[in-house]
Amino acid sequence: MEVLQSSNFEKTIQTKEWVIVDFWAEWCRPCLMLAPIFEQTAQEMPDITFAKVNVDEEGELAMRFGISSIPALILFHKGQPVATHVGTISKERLKQWIQSHR
């Protein structure tokens, strides 16, 4: 699981074919509920880079992508956002959501 910040965000999304980014915060209960699902899915889908952005620490990145509710997931393909999901999601639905956009 990669932790993305302004300093490494662009390099990560540009150099990896598929990246899914979880925009989250420590105080967000739904974010904490999603965290183990996100981590388990990352282990089951090693061909995708799973990364996290803490919106409290990286507000500029959150604003750049219009994040107004968290948790928010953005799926990137070759540096371009292709899909966004806001809110919690089950592991099965997360995998289906990812596959439907590949």
Results as ranks from 00 to 15, higher is better:
3 V>N: 14
4 L>T: 06
6 S>W: 11
6 S>C: 02
10 E>K: 15
13 I>R: 10
16 K>W: 03
16 K>V: 02
19 V>Y: 03
20 I>G: 12
20 I>T: 07
21 V>L: 06
21 V>D: 00
21 V>P: 01
22 D>N: 12
23 F>Y: 06
25 A>H: 02
25 A>K: 04
26 E>H: 11
28 C>T: 13
28 C>P: 01
28 C>H: 00
29 R>Y: 10
29 R>L: 10
31 C>F: 03
33 M>R: 15
34 L>P: 01
34 L>W: 04
34 L>H: 03
36 P>N: 08
37 I>R: 00
37 I>Q: 02
39 E>H: 07
39 E>I: 12
41 T>E: 00
42 A>K: 00
44 E>L: 15
44 E>F: 01
45 M>Q: 12
45 M>C: 05
45 M>N: 03
47 D>K: 09
47 D>F: 15
47 D>Y: 15
48 I>E: 01
48 I>R: 02
49 T>S: 14
49 T>P: 01
50 F>I: 14
51 A>F: 06
51 A>E: 10
52 K>Q: 15
53 V>G: 07
53 V>L: 12
55 V>W: 01
57 E>W: 09
57 E>Y: 11
58 E>N: 14
59 G>K: 09
59 G>L: 05
59 G>F: 05
60 E>R: 10
60 E>M: 11
60 E>I: 05
60 E>Q: 14
60 E>A: 14
61 L>Y: 12
61 L>W: 08
62 A>E: 03
62 A>M: 00
64 R>G: 00
65 F>D: 00
68 S>P: 00
71 P>A: 13
71 P>R: 09
72 A>P: 04
74 I>R: 07
75 L>W: 03
77 H>S: 08
78 K>T: 09
78 K>E: 14
78 K>V: 08
79 G>V: 10
79 G>Q: 09
82 V>E: 02
83 A>T: 02
84 T>A: 14
84 T>Y: 06
85 H>G: 10
86 V>K: 09
87 G>M: 05
89 I>K: 01
89 I>F: 04
89 I>H: 02
91 K>M: 09
92 E>W: 00
92 E>K: 13
95 K>R: 15
99 Q>I: 15
100 S>R: 08
101 H>E: 05
101 H>D: 01
102 R>D: 08
